[in-house]
Structure formats: C-alpha cells, structure tokens
Amino acid sequence: MLLSSCHSTTSKKGQEFETDSIFKSEPIPTEEEQGQSSGTTAFVLQPVPRDIPTGEAISPVLLSMQTEYNYYPLSTTEVKVTVTSHSQQEYICGNDYSLAYYNNEKRQWETLPTDPVIEDIGWILQPEYPTHEQTIKLYTSEVPNRAGKYRIYKAFNRNSKVAYAEFELVDETGAKRLRKQMDAARHNKNIISSQNLYVSYMRSDSIFVDLINNSIHFQKLFRKEILNYSAINYGAVREPSPFTQKAYTDTLQVSMKTEKPVYPIGTESVNVILTNKNLGQQNLFFGEYYFVARKQGTQWIPLYHNRLVNDVGILLKPHGDYQFKAQLYPLFNDNTSGQYRVYKEVEFDGTNRKWYMAAEFRIE
C-alpha cells in the first residue's frame, strides 16, 4: 500500500522495524470446511486503546504532525493527520498510533480505542518523500465524543522517538466561543482575511461565513489566519458574471464621473460625483449600493466587493451633487492596468423608471 506523497519500501532496511499488530490473511474455507467448523465461535475484533508512546519528543522544527483542522464538532468520526519531516534525518514509522483525550477533572491524558487491525506497512520519511497522511477513526460507539482536547501520537525509529498532533472537539457552546474569537480577529487590520470577511452567522455548531472573495485560495487563507474549524460553511465559490445592462455617464440631465480620469495600480478607492441637473425639478432617488467592474475584452466583469450595505434611500434635489467613495478592494481583485466603471442604479422619485449610471476611469 502506498499513500500519496510518501515512500513505501520493501527493502531489508524497511523490514527491520515492527508494528503493534500484524494480521496475515488466511485461506477462505470451502463450503465443506465451513460446515465442519459451524460449531466454532466467531471472533469479532474490537477497537483497543494503545498506550501513549514514551520515546524522546521530536522537535516540530524537525518533524511536525498536524490534523487537517484545529477544531471539529462533536459529531466528527474521522480526523486526517499529516506527518511531515523538515530535516535531512530519516524517520521511520508504521500505521500504528495512539489516541488520547485530556480529562480536565483528572488533569491527565486518557487513551481511547483505536483501530484493532494495523496494516503491516513501513514508512520512511526522507527529504525526497517527506509527507505521510493517515485518516484516524474516532470510535464513538465505544467511547462517545466529549468536548475538549485530543492528541494523536505516533512512534518513530523503533519507538525511540515520538510526535503528536493536537486538535479540539467543540459542542455548540464551544462553537460560539470560536465565533467570538473569529469576530474579534476581524478588527486586526494587519491580516488580509479580516478585511475579506463581511458577515457571519451560526446554526447549531456550524459557522457560516461570507467572504468578499470566496475563492478556494482565500478560504485556505482564512483558515490559516483566523479560524481552522471543520464546520465552517463558506458557501459556493462565486465567479462574477459579466454585467450586460446598458448604463449611462450622462442622460436626462443626470451625470456621474470620478474625481480623476486615471488612478495608479494599487488604488484602494475612487471618489465619485453624481449630479442631478434635471430641468424638470425632479428629485433623484437611489440607495448606497454600487459596484465596480473591469473591462475584459468586450465585457464588463464586476470586481469582488462587499454586498452588505445600509438599506437607506437617498434623495438628490435638482442642481445638487452627491459624492461617495467607491472601494476597489485591491487585496481581493487583480486590478491591473485597464478601463473600469463604477455602476449605480438610480430613478426619479415617484416614478418606476430605473436605470444605471456609470463613471469610467482608468488604472495605469
């Protein structure tokens, strides 16, 4: 058996180490043999706790063990762990492992049931093959999951060295605590993900997150910078669709333009001026919402932006100006040189006729 990113060996060297349990396959009996042995007792293998290894602890600088997520809900039944060697030293291990739960009342680690059958596979972690992944099953039918900290231990080099990966199971109260931590991190403007998050909510022990840019790249960055919880729901990855409705820079004595015609790459926002010059003395009505699009070929593709705005109505009297700041979110958009538009939907107060105004500018 060969797992991804790992090196399995059948060399003499690879055969020298042992695992806790080795089960060899037996010949399948014929019907006659089955009939003769019908009176024998069938044995069912049960999950068994394994002692925590007592070897020398390996520095995380040399070898690290990490679970896929730092936090999991109580309903979790499997946890993926990744072992990675960061040194030139060779580390040898098998599929055997120990699982433990920290009992806060007793202030000690308690071993939990593990797989009763461990495949006879040896792994050599070398610079050419530094990583090994393994899925650990939580036998909840034997011992129900409890909120708290858990560890997965593995022994290396004939049990002389040991490393572990730690994770936490949380109940609904724990999930609320995680969300509070997440919301507190939103105020840290030194990390990109805090600026990418614009709304979150909870349902039971799941956290739902809306990101300005919801691509896989920014989901991974969010887990790295803010919260690595398996029960976060980011929703479907959204790709902006081309905006195809007609828009005007000047129509019906209404105009919209940016403060400058050209802005440098990296500009975070542009000032926009909407002017009502209507001769019929009609008030212009609109809301706070707007969006920015970049021209790609013949299409206008909206930038990723914050869709959450205050639900307010604004009246612009004749011969009046309304100025607002349009955010370009350069952290979450590839705002290269090109032509851009700020779009805003407007209407005359008391009418049902709506249309889009557009203010064009360039980034160079």
Rank of each mutant, 00 (worst) to 15 (best):
E78Y: 14
S85L: 01
E32P: 00
P49L: 07
C93M: 14
E18N: 12
T82D: 06
E56L: 04
S59W: 02
S85R: 06
L99M: 09
I92P: 00
D120G: 03
E133G: 05
E128Q: 08
E119L: 15
S75C: 10
Y129K: 09
V44N: 08
D115H: 01
Y91E: 03
I118G: 05
L138M: 13
Q36G: 03
Y102V: 07
T140L: 05
E18H: 10
A42D: 07
D20I: 15
L63V: 09
K106Q: 13
I22S: 09
I22Q: 04
E119R: 12
Y139D: 09
Y69R: 01
T114N: 08
A57G: 00
Y69M: 00
L74E: 06
Q66F: 00
Q88T: 07
V79I: 15
S85T: 11
P73N: 06
E105C: 00
W123S: 00
L99D: 02
N103V: 06
E31T: 12
I58W: 02
K106I: 02
H86K: 08
N95K: 11
T19W: 02
Y101A: 08
S85N: 13
S75E: 15
T135W: 08
P116S: 07
D115Y: 00
Q126M: 04
T76L: 11
W123P: 00
Q108P: 01
P53G: 02
S75V: 12
V117E: 07
T67V: 10
Q108I: 14
L125T: 01
S75P: 03
H132L: 15
L62H: 08
I22D: 05
K137N: 08
Q134C: 10
Q36K: 13
Q108N: 11
W109H: 03
P60Y: 01
L62Y: 08
N70F: 13
G35A: 13
L125C: 01
H86P: 05
A57T: 11
T111C: 13
S37F: 04
N103S: 14
I121M: 12
Y97F: 13
Y129N: 11
P53Q: 02
T67R: 07
F17C: 11
Y101P: 06
V44M: 04
S38H: 10
Y69H: 14
I92L: 11
S64Y: 01
I22P: 04
E33L: 12
Y102K: 09
K24V: 06
Y102R: 08
E90Y: 03
L45I: 10
M65W: 00
T30F: 03
E133F: 03
K24Q: 03
E90N: 10
N104M: 09
S21K: 12
A42P: 06
Q66W: 00
E68L: 13
S21A: 10
L112Y: 07
Q46L: 05
F17K: 14
G39T: 02
R50S: 09
Q66M: 09
P49V: 02
F17A: 12
D115K: 02
T140V: 14
